[in-house]
Design a binder for these strands. Structure first.
Lengths: 349, 349
DNA sequence: TTCTTTTATGAAATCGATACCATAACCAGC
DNA sequence: GCTGGTTATGGTATCGATTTCATAAAAGAA
């Protein structure tokens, strides 16, 4: 193992020059079939394998993309949404023979430093940023360095100059809200996420727009935004249940929040979906396995991951390409956590 | 960005030799403070950053570990257990300034080829194999190449010669079985996993041993092993419910299987935990969020990942070290999915 | 047959950083 | 003042593969 067979060893044994061996490796048409056969035979005999690093140095390309995630404390990692994203990314990379370099860190600063290191050190050819957030250092840094990158999510600023892959979250949220309105719901609550993230803002906007379009008022007490992980689902439920008119439907941007609140509701004797319909985003395995299974917006995580990675690789292969962005369609998956509102139930509530 | 500043540029501008710059980078004590200051100033001015690949080539070390997972079709990826593992691995790598190279593939052959490529191409310094399975090509290949590797899970053969990190799954399964027996259960069913994997065999063994120790008979109809993903939870439940004496407790090696079976049970009016207690392995976020929350064996995924990665890195730093293995302790986390069996309920069933 | 063109291959520089060996400068000791 | 020993730094080969330029050999044209 320590004794590595190099291109020179092969060359010597085959009685040719190293450059010839190199040309055999890349299957150059300028080498005769006879020589190719001879060299390949020697490569087999010696157990030669291309040393990847030698090639990297001269070709100035690592065939590797860097993946930047949120800080680990956001529990992004533990979410199957992340896993599915990663699955899609991974598939795309393998199709194109690229590899992935994963970044993680417990603080934003640590992540930023990692990114700087991998960019400056030319450890990766391009970067895939798996979030879009206000006050982020990473994207501006990549822009300033004119380093190739793709954002998964709509960039906070200058979307025209930035390649990104995203769902239309405003639209998706509108559709989900309309779907619930279509089921007869008028008091629809919304439990969102940290509004630093573009995705949270978009979805809230879509919800508000849909309500407004249909002439339905929003009571700000139905909105529970920015639920940090410390926030207690029981607390959310309590705050909702003391209202004179409680919402008959709730939209969650996070499936886990939906589950915990659902559990809290059913413990207080609120039946789902009869008394409160529940809807959420992402449609991972979590929604499928919930009891009752969740009605969700399928954001197509695997495809999101796949498209973002392959867009990045396209960009790397043709650096002058136009910076096209991509919107992955969503669709609503109806399951048992939501149902048509019975008029009498509504009156009673 | 395209114009890279190299060590030579710095040397020229600072009026020193490239070797001196290299020594400044590694903060060698043989260079005077005055020269160091001068060189560092120039590095700043030119915006110099170490090119990682140049170093890799000469040092013959990539500071990268390869991570080998099961085939993606096993849904290992979508499981939060995997995410937590990855989180632990990632933390350990960052502590030691290593990076991770992720392998995936849809077939075993594809994964094997990936491993060969990264080992032969010297793309990584060592490999972390996240499973232990019969008829696996990867581990024998690594052994034969005497390439440094660590297995997460007990190796199928020659455990003495192999570094691994694992729980004591036999013991953990015994304890869980005893725990249920301690709650008064005598008819305990077991829904396991693909017995190609060492972990599945160990847990089944533990369950059998605990039952035997306590003089409790096992009806083979209580055992549902090897539930491939296609297997229907409803089918499992039907097969159990037609039995004259249905089990009063069920142990699952997979949390997802536990959830689907639980749902199927409650749809048929079987109440959990009053009529059937449920217990599972892994204690990821899934168990916490289930309704009712699952009693589980906490296998400490984050720590498993952390220890396996740092063991591998230790091995890389000191190749002659003794191949120590490591057992991560487990503990039972009691939640509402299991309860003491009421005598009358048992008689009735 | 001789000259030109094409084809197949070799020699050597290169990518960026490191490390060994050499050496100039300086100081101490006699 | 000369020798010997440090100390700080320079010169250069090296890691493994690629690539440009050069050239020998073969093929085709005159």
């Amino acid at each position: 193992m320590n004794v590595s067979v190099t291109i020179k060893d092969v060359a010597k044994k085959a009685g040719v020059a190293p450059s010839t061996v190199s040309r055999v490796i890349s299957d150059s048409p300028r080498i005769s079939e006879k020589t190719k056969r001879k060299v390949r035979k020697v490569m087999d005999e010696l157990g030669y394998h291309l040393n990847y690093n030698g090639r990297v140095l001269v070709s100035q390309s690592t065939q590797t993309i860097g993946i930047v995630t949120k800080v680990s404390s956001d529990h992004f990692f533990e979410n199957p949404f992340f896993s599915e994203l990663l699955r899609g990314i991974s598939d795309a990379c393998h199709e194109q023979d690229y590899s992935m370099y994963l970044t993680t860190g417990n603080t934003e600063e640590a992540i930023f430093q990692e990114v700087v290191k991998m960019v400056q050190g030319k450890r990766v050819d391009g970067v895939l940023v798996l979030y879009s957030r206000e006050d982020d250092q990473v994207v501006p840094f990549l822009r300033e360095s004119s380093f190739p990158f793709v954002v998964l999510g709509k960039p906070v600023d200058r979307p025209g100059e930035t390649m990104y892959v995203d769902n239309d979250n405003v639209q998706a949220s509108k559709e989900m809200t309309r779907y619930l309105i279509g089921l007869g719901h008028e008091r629809i609550g919304y439990v969102g996420g940290n509004s630093q993230f573009e995705v949270a803002r978009d979805r809230l906007e879509g919800y508000r727009a849909a309500m407004k379009d249909q002439g339905l008022p929003i009571d700000e007490k139905w909105l529970k935004n920015d639920p940090s992980d410390k926030q207690d689902p029981d607390q959310i439920v309590e705050q909702l249940l003391v209202l004179e008119k409680i919402p008959t439907a709730l939209i969650f941007t996070d499936e886990y929040n939906a589950l915990t609140v659902m559990r809290s509701l059913s413990r207080r004797g609120v039946s789902i979906p009869e008394q409160v319909s529940i809807a959420a985003f992402n449609n991972t395995v979590v929604s499928r396995l919930a009891d009752p299974p969740l009605t969700t917006v399928d954001t197509q995580a695997i495809q999101l991951g796949h498209e973002s990675a392959s867009s990045l690789i396209d960009l790397l292969k043709r650096p002058d390409m136009v910076k096209k962005s991509m919107i992955i369609p969503t669709r609503i998956v109806e399951r048992e956590s939501s149902c048509r509102l019975e008029r009498n139930t509504q009156k009673k509530a």
